[in-house]
Computed example of a mutant assay.
Amino acid sequence: MKTQALLASIALALAGSAFAAGEHNHAHEHKPLHGGLVVEVKDMDYELVAKPTVIQLHLRDHGKPTDVAKASAKLTLLSGAEKQEVELKPAGDKLEATGTFKVGPGTKVVALVTIAGKPAGTVRFALK
């Protein structure tokens, strides 16, 4: 009887810890809101929308849009043996660049994102 009570107590403690950890780590959803690919880094969601003529980066902090007026990003696009550097600038509520980009399936994107008042961060994407 004591063994069952002990096992039940351990299971309850572990379940509570897992629930609390899950709630803390996923207080917001990481779904794409603009049809792109979402990556989370340090509670920031970075949504990359990559098209052959435009690249956009949407930023959300704990699920809320981030002010990008004083932000920028430098992207490195790696498609096979080809490498392309792209600078994104504020465009309304997102960072954006227009031009001609090789962004097909398998393209890897490394973004160095600078937001005013915060250290620069690196975000990695793999396009599908």
Rank of each mutant, 00 (worst) to 15 (best):
V39T: 13
V110I: 12
G16C: 11
A8Q: 14
L127F: 02
A73N: 04
H58T: 05
P105Q: 11
P32R: 07
A69Q: 12
V49L: 06
H34L: 13
L59R: 03
L77Y: 00
I55D: 00
L78R: 05
F19S: 13
G99I: 02
A116P: 06
L33R: 06
E23G: 10
T66Y: 09
G104F: 06
M44L: 12
V110T: 09
L77R: 00
K70W: 07
T122D: 10
V110H: 08
A15R: 08
M1P: 08
F19Q: 11
A18P: 13
A27M: 11
A91F: 11
T98E: 10
A18Q: 15
D45Q: 07
G22D: 14
P90Q: 02
L59M: 10
G35P: 00
L6G: 08
T114C: 09
P90K: 01
D45A: 14
L95C: 01
V41L: 11
S79Y: 12
G121E: 14
T76V: 13
R60A: 15
Q56K: 07
G80T: 03
S79G: 06
E96V: 05
H26N: 09
V68W: 00
F19D: 13
K83G: 05
A69I: 08
S17Q: 14
L112Y: 08
Y46E: 03
K74L: 14
I55L: 10
G36A: 06
T98I: 10
E87R: 07
I55C: 01
V113R: 03
K51G: 09
V68L: 04
L48D: 00
L57K: 01
L112P: 04
F125A: 01
V38E: 00
I55W: 00
G22T: 06
K108H: 07
K64P: 08
P65S: 13
E47V: 04
L14K: 05
V68R: 01
E82L: 14
A15Y: 15
T98A: 12
K74D: 14
K42L: 15
T66G: 12
G106C: 04
A20N: 13
L78P: 05
R60P: 01
K83C: 04
L78G: 05
T107E: 04
L78E: 09
G36I: 04
T107P: 04
L57H: 01
L88D: 01
I10N: 02
A116M: 07
H28T: 13
T66P: 06
V39I: 12
E47K: 03
G117L: 02
K2Q: 10
A8T: 13
E29R: 12
P119H: 15
M1V: 06
G117C: 01
D67S: 13
L127M: 03
V86F: 04
A11T: 07
A21Y: 15
G63L: 07
V86K: 03
E29T: 09
Q84T: 02
A13N: 11
H30G: 09
D67P: 04
A13Y: 07
L7S: 09
D93K: 12
A5S: 11
T122M: 13
L112A: 07
A71T: 03
M44R: 06
L77F: 01
A50H: 01
A126H: 07
R124A: 11
E87Q: 08
N25T: 10
S72T: 06
L37Q: 15
A91T: 06
V123K: 04
P65E: 03
K128L: 05
M44W: 11
F19I: 14
A8P: 01
L12N: 11
L48G: 00
T100F: 12
H58E: 04
L88S: 00
L57V: 02
A50K: 02
